[in-house]
Design a protein around this nucleic acid. Structure first.
Lengths: 222, 222
DNA sequence: GTCTATATTTCGATAGAC
DNA sequence: GTCTATCGAAATATAGAC
């Protein structure tokens, strides 16, 4: 968090510019996630950034453009960690599934990108390109990596083949719902009883691996 | 919480009374679900109802009170159908699970009550009582019924005992996420490929029943 | 109970000084 | 690049006629 001892524009292009624009985006992400799109005003954002409202319009032409930048950037870093797990040849198939699931839990619950679902749902009709970017840049990427990890296990004979669509929803569904539930029920005393992250994650992972190990619908094995 | 001031429902108009308050609530539900809380104005609601904005304030003292009434009523009917499935002694344990899951899919995806999660998430900090009502009146009720159905199967020896928390999330997670995803990605051409209701539901149900039939972590049974 | 009219505040966005 | 000042529109809510 820098103050005001860096404002030298230098001769550098807009290549590296961690300054105002980035700070506005960060504050905006926080506010949008907390209050929603319509519930976040440019005045409130300006106050959170410690600048005047008019100054926001120097960096972004409109609230909508600011919002699009806000929810369209940052997918790459979230996907990168998953890809590294996918490519890690030192892991067993089961370990790779466990690592991947743990990473998806981390992204979906702890990072702003993962908590965006209700926000995207709010604006998806008004600003369809936001849903498109979230879908193509984040959802599809995650699904493809998980499918590839499972397929590799099936090819090696480590996993049984289960219905792909059902497995995708069985893997991502509980995680997304857990993230949203924890946002919905912040403050309720039962939240750590009904929605504890580590406990749900471990149990979820065990059940998924049971299904991957099992020969589907044919218990007469061995 | 006091009841709204309503024209006294004498014995005269018991039969037909869809009148203003109910119609306002219905229109409000639609708009709130579509545009969010902050994104729905009293003017837009008045226009949707075909009356003047000021008339809304005769039926509800404020926008917030209207919203609370909107998202606090209607849980009972949604829970009732589930309870009937729970109490239906003519069903086998597997059939009961299938029926219950199908009903939860229907509620969560087709009814306004089930699609409320993003909306509750938006306002949960501003109006905590809404999250409380949704939690106690809807979420907890559903979870308890599903747990009871599974427990009955375990007691009869039809189901294996799995981790309860994990199973709850494995059952409700994919359904809630499917509902929200279909709201987020309305209009995208891949929606029926990635998020087809009937196909996900059937596959989901099969996988859940595999886990309930299976002896956890010990395949050397019988 | 519904209307017209209006009060008051806040919204997104712009103009122009520095 | 940030500021002060302000615009026009739209927000919630109220007053009072009928």
């Amino acid at each position: 968090m820098e103050k005001e001892d860096e404002p030298k524009p230098e001769s550098a292009q807009d290549k590296e510019r961690p300054s105002r624009r980035a700070e506005i985006l960060e504050q905006a992400r926080t506010l949008f996630l907390d209050k929603g799109y319509a519930g976040t005003s440019m005045s409130a954002l300006a106050k959170a950034c410690g600048i005047q409202k008019a100054s926001l319009y120097h960096h972004f032409p409109s609230k909508e453009a600011l919002f699009i930048a806000c929810v369209t950037e940052g997918y790459d870093v979230a996907i990168l960690a998953l890809q590294e797990i996918q490519d890690d040849r030192a892991l067993t198939h089961e370990e790779r599934v466990r690592r991947a699931l743990a990473e998806i839990y981390r992204i979906t619950i702890d990072s702003p990108v993962g908590r965006m679902s209700p926000l995207i749902a709010e604006v998806s009709r008004q600003i369809p390109e936001v849903a498109r970017a979230f879908h193509d840049g984040f959802i599809i990427q995650q699904h493809e990596i998980v499918n590839a990890i499972i397929d590799a296990g099936i090819e090696d004979g480590a996993f049984a083949r289960q219905d792909r669509l059902g497995m995708e929803h069985l893997i991502f569904g509980p995680i997304v719902t857990l993230s949203i539930s924890r946002q919905m029920f912040t403050g309720l005393e039962t939240i750590e009883t009904l929605f504890p992250v580590a406990q749900v994650r471990d149990s979820h992972c065990d059940l998924i691996l049971q299904l991957l190990r099992k020969q589907p619908e044919s218990d007469s094995a061995a």
